[in-house]
Amino acid sequence: MLEGVSVVRDGRAILDSVDLTLRERRIAVLGPNGSGKSTLVRLLNGLVTPSKGRVAVDGHDTAKDAALVRRRVGFVFQNPENQIVFPIVSEDLAFGLKHLKLPKAELHRRVLEALERFGIGHLAERQSHTLSGGERQLVALAAVMVMKPALVVFDEPTTLLDLRNRNRIRAAITEMPESAIVVSHDLDLVRDFDRAIVIDQGRVVRDDRPGPAIDWYRAHFG
């Protein structure tokens, strides 16, 4: 939930008095480059804190309870290259779990389970820098899902991918049971979502079902 949220950087308003309650299972965030989409979704994970107003996830203020919020909200970045921090894939997935102090066997089981879920179990022992773009994005997604978040935020997850890998990520997002908020320029990806929010110049300019919202977006920014 965002209440009267403004984000100001270097005297410029990136977001301006945004009020939103996000409950739907699949929500798309659309908007032109520089409109404030990424800032909006980064607020949900506490990566950005508001200059004014309040952001709460399940009642937890993102500015005060960032650690708690991050356990509930996973975040998949546009460039998975910067999201994978360990040299071996399985080590990277174990990175987040380590802080939960799980027994080794349980940790190993959860890592394999997360990899298998996206059909990349065979990559467990691969060196991170040898993965293809699509494999990296799936590993980054598995690394987020291994923490079992209730909500996953995707910031332009298909932008850097070719058609085949784009389809793999699309399928992964469509099939996952968790709630998802997806920032994307890929309008086909979000067409079947429950809700679409269009942002422009830091303000919500349209909040609707994806069909009408996409048509409106195309008419105004296409």
């Binding site: 984000v7 100001v8 950087r9 270097d10 990136i14 977001l15 480059n33 520089g34 409109s35 404030g36 989409k37 990424s38 800032t39 980064r42 607020l43 994970n45 506490g46 990566l47 950005v48 804190t49 200059s51 993102t62 500015a63 309870d65 960032a66 650690a67 708690l68 991050r70 356990r71 996973g74 975040f75 970045f77 990175f95 987040g96 802080h99 690394a143 987020v144 923490m147 910031d155 332009e156 920032v183």
Partner: peptide
């Protein structure tokens, strides 16, 4: 930070900042 690294302090962030004031425009 997004992955909840708590090495800096129990509720903190790897980069020593729990959330940035300001943001990234895209």
């Amino acid at each position: 930070d997004a992955r909840g690294f708590e090495g800096a302090h129990p509720s903190g962030s790897a980069s020593g900042r729990t959330g940035r004031q300001g943001g990234t425009a895209s």
